[in-house]
Design a protein around this nucleic acid. Structure first.
Lengths: 346, 346
DNA sequence: CGATTCTATGGAAGCGGTTCCAAGAAAAAC
DNA sequence: GTTTTTCTTGGAACCGCTTCCATAGAATCG
């Protein structure tokens, strides 16, 4: 490794400007009063020397990294869903002069979720002030993070297997109410035979199914869950399950899909069989991915405000950093059912 | 802001282990030889005290941040394309014990691309070792980054308005050859009247059009460019231009779309008019987004290996960091035409 | 067995900033 | 004109680590 070019330090600036080092620091932090003349001289020297203060050195004294980590498992990252959340995080962070470190949790067949270690960025101290846990989160990881006393905010919809009172900061969105609204809407449009497509192995799918179930039971209708086993991805779900949905004595008039990907797969499978949406069967999704509006007909779906979730995570984390003793808070952001073309009035 | 809980330092560990601070440091860096017994004592003390070394302090001495910045304009970020590149960057970086800082360039109507300032993360020195420039890059930004002598690698496909010899490290993929292959394939399938859909305001679309043009001219066929003006996004491109494609005396039998988004929009517009793909018109795209394979028929498209691009960017940046004087290099990664169902044999 | 080499270890110096205290200069008060 | 207060300013000390030098004991050698 060759030598890094020598960088200007605060002492050289001080010499160039003919002032003391303390003065340079004061100018940089625009803290206490520096006389108009001195400030100009310093600023000039800084410009002439192309001086940029060393961030590490400042941080070591300030005891704040001004950086948070956005942690995502490598399983989840493909999804634009999380990319949008990251965008929200970055957007709020940059407004607060914070940086965002992107890190992935590298799960692999060799390191099953139950025994994964802390990611390197959390092993060392001082690099980041806190963590935002997006993507699927396993309880053991949470406990490790608590163990090192690293402040964090979790995207609660993705926390696995902790349905009890959770003693940490969370931001989530309202799965249950989303499908509840969607189901009510379908019912208001005259639908009675409505099925839910999705498995319930994820807590969020479980909640979405519950919301649908509640909507059905409100009107004394019977909830029906359609699952598909052993599908490689949500996109293949429809292909696998469309047969079971269409067969049976009384074919449903509408399907609530567990997410947009399932809805999209279903739509394709239906198209292929010549079943028209929404003429013969209505369809609603969940997430409002970019493609939802591009489908034909555009998909009615439950919109999750992803940027807002990201911003809220960041905001909550900053509050935690400023008030470490504050009580934990859980925020559930509302979801919004968007009426588009994929539902027909019966 | 309340007090940050006091963290254990190397001196406390030294006291607890009954050794000197230098020894702790040597154990941590597993550098020079420490006796088996002492090492065990130190390791034990570290565990007992829950000591995690302060990363900032180490970096200030090592003069390396072990961190690179992935910089993307806020215009580009929505696209899964860049998310995948980021994934590739992170993947390679984590293998090399490097961290990835995610930063966005906040363009706005108030700050047009020509006069945007350096992002905050580049204003300070020592935070990052280098930058990966993804997303649309304007020359003035490049010059600013050169000005502060920050090592960088650019995703060359997105560099605007610099077609001369470029004196910096670049990773790109082969736009021209991609459409060339696609066009040759179409011709091999018996197509003669082939049009290109896309405008040429972006350099990469320009190159894709050129590749298509070359393929056509090889067979003495006449290239035709179909553009759409004033469309809010590539997705709306098809809707806008489908009329012009289908009308005219001799309707084309195939369309090369500038990217998958255009292809998708086109496909929808064609569906809506009852024109069947590929029976009545064949269609190929570019990028191989996730949705390409989910379309019906699955879209034949030019695959860009996004993770590989990310990895290559990271790799090249690390080489640059280790050898600052090394000559600049430009790498163009191959693209690959994927045959799927959207092209018909004539 | 004394001289020489080697290995393990302690701790001072220093990285590039911030902070604080003391002190000089200027302004205000008496 | 002298005293008091306020405003600026310089620079030592320090943040938590690495690095290097000095030293002490062990090992090797003639």
């Amino acid at each position: 490794m060759e030598a890094v070019p020598r960088k200007t330090t605060i002492r050289e600036v001080a010499r160039a400007a003919g002032v003391g080092i303390g003065t340079i620091s004061r100018v940089l932090n625009s803290s206490s009063q520096v006389s108009w003349k001195t400030r100009a001289r310093v600023l000039d020297a800084i410009r002439r020397l192309g001086f940029r203060p060393n961030a590490q050195a400042r941080r070591i004294l300030k005891k704040r990294a001004e950086m948070v980590c956005f942690l995502l498992s490598n399983r989840d990252f493909l999804h634009p869903f999380h990319a949008r959340i990251l965008q929200g995080v970055e957007s709020y962070a940059s407004g607060m002069k914070q940086h965002v470190l992107f890190a992935a949790l590298h799960y692999s067949p060799r390191t099953p979720p139950e025994k994964i270690d802390l990611p390197p960025v959390l092993q060392e101290h001082g690099l980041i002030d806190g963590v935002i846990l997006a993507g699927t989160i396993y309880p053991n990881l949470l406990r490790r993070i608590e163990g090192i006393q690293m402040p964090f905010v979790a995207l609660s919809n993705n926390v696995m297997g902790m349905d009890d009172v959770q003693q940490f900061d969370q931001v989530g969105f309202d799965d249950l109410n989303g499908t509840l609204q969607a189901t009510r809407y379908l019912i208001s449009k005259g639908h009675r035979r409505i099925v839910f497509a999705g498995d319930v192995s994820y807590p969020w799918l479980q909640r979405r199914f519950e919301g649908y179930g509640r909507g059905m039971r409100e009107q004394k209708l019977k909830p029906v869950l359609i699952t598909a086993r052993n599908v490689p991805s949500f996109g293949d779900f429809g292909q696998e399950s469309v047969g079971r949905i269409l067969s049976g004595r009384s074919r449903p008039t509408a399907v609530v899909a567990g997410n947009d990907e399932i809805a999209y797969g279903l739509w394709r499978a239906l198209c292929r069989r010549g079943v028209k949406v929404p003429d013969e069967i209505s369809l609603v999704g969940f997430d409002d991915r970019e493609e939802a509006v591009l489908m034909d007909p555009p998909l009615s779906t439950v919109c999750v405000h992803k940027e807002e979730i990201g911003e809220t995570c960041m905001k909550m984390l900053l509050e935690r950093l400023h008030h470490p003793q504050m009580a934990f808070s859980q925020r559930v952001l509302p979801t919004e059912f968007l009426i588009r073309g994929s539902v027909r009035q019966l």
